[in-house]
């Protein structure tokens, strides 16, 4: 029995690794550029790699570099990081609903690897998300992020300009690749995504909210509105049958 369980979690781990390949590809150019920028900002190789190892959150790492070069204080940088990354609370809450029951220590470990990208891949997966899958998915993404940050610093250059530009679409293409199959299956997904996209565009372009809060607000508004409308419709249909 024990052997069976080990085999199963090994194959789940492998599935996670495979699902993370697109993320690893998408992280490479961003992490290479981060390494390069960290060097020009005056960080050492140790500090650069340490930041990618400890923080593992792209947008906030970039922001910290630009704040450092502006001479911003450490406390403000940490506070900004918190605000930019607060959206992960919502993502973890949503993912927890579909993850398999497990000891909280395992969950506490793999939750370190929740990013926009790992969350999206795991949350759009059919069925339950197992611990082994999360470890595989997060590990390959994390390794790509950390290793490419270091390489970017060391070679002091990112990819060739045209390739760099083309690869900047990678993570967006991945998000689209995750979304479209569900859109084809369910019109509800189309409404959810379109509504959230509209809200986020409005919040961002009007500068009403910082980008961290804009994503949280747009997501919640869309998710609540669609759920509410669906509830009302169900009720009407229910009454119609009586």
């Amino acid at each position: 029995m024990a052997e069976l369980a080990v085999n199963r979690s090994a194959s789940e781990f492998r599935k996670g690794l495979q699902a993370g390949i697109s993320i690893a590809i998408g992280y490479a150019p961003i992490a290479l550029t981060f390494g390069l920028l960290a060097k020009t900002t005056g960080l050492s190789i140790g500090e650069t790699v340490l930041m990618s190892l400890v923080v593992f959150a792209g947008a906030s790492q970039y922001i910290s570099l630009s704040l450092l070069s502006l001479g911003t204080g450490i406390f403000e940088i940490i506070l900004t990081t918190f605000i930019v990354n607060i959206r992960h609370f919502l993502m973890s809450t949503a993912l927890n609903e579909k993850s398999e029951e497990d000891h909280f220590v395992n969950k506490a470990i793999y939750s370190f690897g929740i990013t926009d990208e790992t969350f999206s891949v795991a949350a759009m997966k059919e069925g339950t998300v197992t611990t082994g899958y999360m470890f595989g998915l997060n590990l390959i993404s994390y390794v790509s992020w950390v290793v490419c940050s270091g390489i970017g610093f060391l070679i002091g250059a990112s990819l060739p300009q045209t390739l760099q530009e083309s690869m900047s679409v990678a993570l967006y293409a991945m998000f689209i690749g995750l979304l479209v199959p569900s859109m084809k299956r369910s019109i509800k997904v189309v409404y959810l995504a379109a509504l959230a996209a509209c809200f986020n565009t409005i919040f961002t372009l009007t500068n009403a909210l910082s980008s961290g809060w804009a994503i949280v607000a747009a997501t919640l508004l869309s998710a609540v509105m669609v759920e509410f409308i669906e509830g009302v419709k169900k009720k009407q249909r229910g009454e119609g049958h009586e």
């Binding site: 919502l90 993502m91 809450t93 949503a94 926009d116 969350f119 999206s120 949350a123 759009m124 967006y172 998000f175 995750l178 979304l179 569900s182 509800k188 997904v189 959810l192 995504a193 379109a194 509504l195 959230a196 996209a197 809200f199 986020n200 804009a214 994503i215 747009a218 997501t219 919640l220 869309s222 998710a223 669609v226 759920e227």
Partner: peptide, 10 residues
């Protein structure tokens, strides 16, 4: 609903 909505916003 959060995953689909998040993807739209991302």
């Amino acid at each position: 609903n959060v995953p689909s909505a998040t993807l739209g916003a991302l």
